[in-house]
């Protein structure tokens, strides 16, 4: 019963998210809005609801399965995009190289030194 109750709460936040983005004409998706609303709700209450955590665990555990049908599509539509292969290589290989480089440089510049209790000899 607790799982179903938690699932109902997730659905209610999804619907609230949908209502919010529709009424305010926001470009973000209903799911993302619902996620932010539920996080905000927990922050205001100062704790999580046990029911929601129970319903969330199995859903998060099967996330990979829920996105898998989308991956199946890749193999059926790939031929249609074959003429743009250079764009894919540029964006995915070179683009990812550049963004990894940027993140590492920014992050090592702004992160304070680790507290001395766990020294970096674990590397």
């Amino acid at each position: 019963m607790h799982v179903i109750k938690g699932f109902l709460i997730l659905l209610l936040f999804l619907l609230s998210g949908d209502a919010l983005v529709t009424l305010l004409n926001l470009p973000i998706s209903a799911g993302v809005a619902g996620m932010l609303l539920i996080t905000l709700w927990f922050m205001l209450r100062g704790r999580m609801q046990e029911d929601v955590a129970l319903a969330s665990q199995p859903l998060i555990a099967v996330l990979a399965m829920l996105i898998m049908p989308g991956v199946v599509g890749v193999f059926f539509v790939a031929g249609r995009y074959a003429d743009q292969w250079l764009a894919f290589v540029a964006a995915l290989v070179v683009g990812t190289f550049l963004s990894v480089l940027t993140t590492l440089i920014l992050m090592s510049r702004f992160t304070p030194k680790e507290p001395t209790k766990d020294e970096d000899r674990s590397c």
């Binding site: 996080t39 929601v52 199946v72």
Partner: peptide, 30 residues
Amino acid sequence: YEVYQQGAAWLVLLLGPATVALGIPLYQQM
């Protein structure tokens, strides 16, 4: 493939509540 995709859409529908569920780990990282 389209026939499969239409059937799987019933399962993929759960992606909505699953996205909302990602608020739980987000809150735990606060």
